[in-house]
Simulated scan of single mutants.
Amino acid sequence: MKKELISIADLQARYHADFETGQLFNSATGREIGYKDEVGEDTFYKRVNIDGRGYYVHRVIFALAYGAWPDIIDHIDGNSLNNKLTNLRSGSTSTNMRNRGRARTESKLGRGVTINRDKNGTPRYYRSQIMINGETCQKDFKIDDEAALLHCQLYTINKYHKAGFPNRHFESLKSAILENPQYQTFCDKLASDEYQILNGDLN
């Protein structure tokens, strides 16, 4: 079971931030905390572990500043490592991530889809990874058949669709699916909801 969010009062008692630089500190030790985490191909965020639960540093900084946990946070300049308070805005009061166009850097496999390789560079699995309401949704697809990429892409586009993201948010993913040679081959085998999404949103 996922642990509950730390209370704002406890958060403010134990941590503080430099809102001008976007740094987060442990108030007891005075040391900066947080580490760089890759959440997609060439996409990084700073994370921190608090009481056994992971948090994105930009969300913690926003909560410290405004006294409430935000639903969605947008990095205004598109730099996900720039956590200065002036670069953060809540999706509840401004154009948020769901209403933005294509990400500056997207995988050629489609938005939300990456490939994992071992130390020798051999592909291991495709990964579907998207963020919904501040939580990372992730699933891996082992490369054990020629349709693994297509299955991963279809799973990802379903997650985007069901979460209410606008079509333009995942245009690169739709294009990647249509360009996948396995798409036509396996089209008649798709689950009905996947087929409807593709035919309704891609065509």
Rank of each mutant, 00 (worst) to 15 (best):
L5Y: 10
I6D: 08
I6M: 13
I6A: 11
S7N: 08
S7A: 12
S7W: 00
I8K: 02
I8P: 02
I8R: 04
A9N: 14
A9G: 04
A9V: 14
D10L: 12
D10G: 08
D10P: 09
D10H: 01
L11Y: 01
Q12N: 15
Q12H: 12
Q12M: 13
A13Q: 14
A13Y: 02
A13C: 12
A13L: 12
Y15I: 07
Y15H: 12
Y15R: 06
H16M: 10
H16S: 11
H16K: 09
H16A: 13
H16E: 13
A17D: 04
A17S: 12
D18T: 05
D18F: 02
D18P: 01
F19H: 04
F19M: 05
E20W: 02
E20P: 08
E20L: 11
T21C: 04
T21D: 03
T21P: 04
T21N: 02
T21E: 06
G22P: 09
G22N: 08
G22D: 09
Q23V: 08
Q23M: 12
Q23D: 11
Q23H: 10
F25L: 04
F25H: 06
N26S: 13
S27Y: 00
S27E: 15
S27M: 12
S27W: 00
S27K: 15
A28P: 04
A28E: 14
A28Q: 11
T29K: 06
T29I: 06
T29R: 06
G30E: 09
R31W: 00
E32A: 15
E32C: 14
E32G: 08
E32N: 14
E32P: 15
I33Y: 00
I33V: 07
G34A: 01
Y35E: 10
Y35D: 07
K36W: 00
K36S: 10
D37M: 06
D37I: 03
E38D: 06
E38A: 14
V39A: 08
V39Y: 03
V39Q: 03
V39G: 07
V39L: 05
V39I: 14
V39P: 00
V39K: 05
E41F: 04
D42H: 06
D42F: 03
D42S: 11
D42M: 08
D42N: 12
D42K: 11
D42E: 11
D42L: 05
